[in-house]
Design a protein around this nucleic acid. Structure first.
Length: 310
DNA sequence: ACATGTTTAAATCTCC
DNA sequence: GGAGATTTAAACATGT
């Protein structure tokens, strides 16, 4: 494990699965769908690690696109010339990363055998026609539809019947960066500053590490192209569409990783409501102090440091 | 030829 | 340790 400040982490493998990376790429696009080449580009632009061995990871990525039901292929319209199809996220896969952890999904999004063809195709066609219809009518502003080209059902995930465990991964981006700190993020404050503001210990080592590691992803203030708001993650990815959320504001407290409550169970921390500013900084600090050093040393959960602060 | 897409298989990783 | 998720490799098909 290279030391912060010594070797750069920028060429380290990001702690995201190909599914996560692909979902990020798709979600970062305005149309919520991208051709393969643009997915490659998104990943290579943001993660230098993937600028090498392209043959290898791109093959893996293509495998993921085909293999996983959470990705749907959308044919190009005649007015959209180019190679290959567009790839989008299946409308019902919204809570794949139900804990907000992009390391590993709790469950694979899998269509029922009988549903497979019908669902995948009908969703694709629905999407296709929805897009086409909106394009023709010139409707579908972000204000009225929740995003240009957003899937019609995208904001009401149904895989749990609309229920969510409410529990979010302790290192979920939303947990770490409280939703109410939208203004702070929008104002261009570095993550470390936000963490500090929240009362978290932000050793200069850590903040330096993040900034030197992946300056292109760690420093939101340098990320011009993408909208920064509480609804967007560090890559300009609308978090709501990647991580199931009930709309309940979850605390930005790094909690010890606990087993995910099974579907239908109540939140693991049901009494914690309100925004992050109401939290006791000391308790948050003690947790963080306990977990950060271990993780930096690579003990316990082998989280990439960038994830902790991103 | 090359990019894209599908499928199979095996290795590896992570969680319980 | 087992189950399931993820990664990797590879073969093959198709389209431009």
């Amino acid at each position: 494990m290279p030391r912060p400040g010594k070797n750069s982490y920028s060429d380290q493998k990001p702690p995201y699965s190909y599914i996560s990376l692909t979902a990020m790429a798709i979600q970062s696009s305005q149309e919520k769908m991208l051709p393969l080449s643009d997915i490659y580009k998104f990943i290579m632009d943001r993660f230098p690690y993937y600028r090498e061995n392209t043959q290898r990871w791109q093959n893996s990525l293509r495998h993921n696109l085909s293999f996983n039901d959470c990705f749907i292929k959308i044919p190009r319209r005649p007015d959209q010339p180019g190679k290959g199809s567009f790839w989008a996220l299946h409308p019902d896969c919204g809570d794949m990363f139900e804990n907000g952890s992009f390391l590993r999904r709790r469950k694979r999004f899998k269509l029922m055998r009988s549903d497979h063809l019908a669902s995948k195709n009908s969703q694709m066609l629905h999407y296709f026609h929805h897009q086409h219809h909106q394009a023709k009518l010139g409707i579908g502003t972000p204000e009225t539809t929740g995003g240009v080209g957003r899937l019609p059902q995208f904001q009401t995930y149904s895989i749990n019947g609309g229920q969510s465990s409410g529990f979010k991964h302790p290192f979920a981006i939303e947990n770490i960066i409280g939703r109410d700190y939208k203004g702070m993020m929008a104002s261009g404050l570095p993550i470390a500053s936000v963490m500090h503001h929240l009362g978290y210990p932000v050793p200069s080592q850590i903040s330096n590490m993040v900034n030197s590691m992946w300056p292109h992803v760690g420093m939101l203030d340098s990320m011009a192209p993408m909208p920064i708001s509480s609804d967007y993650g560090p890559f300009g990815v609308p978090m709501k569409t990647l991580c199931h959320t009930t709309g309940q504001t979850m605390p930005a407290v790094p909690l010890p990783i606990k087993p995910t409550p099974s579907l239908g169970q109540v939140s693991a921390i049901p009494t914690l409501t309100g925004n992050a500013a109401h939290l006791c900084p000391s308790s948050a600090s003690s947790l963080l102090e306990k977990t950060l050093p271990d993780m930096i040393e690579g003990k316990g959960n082998s989280l990439h440091p960038a994830l902790m602060l991103s």
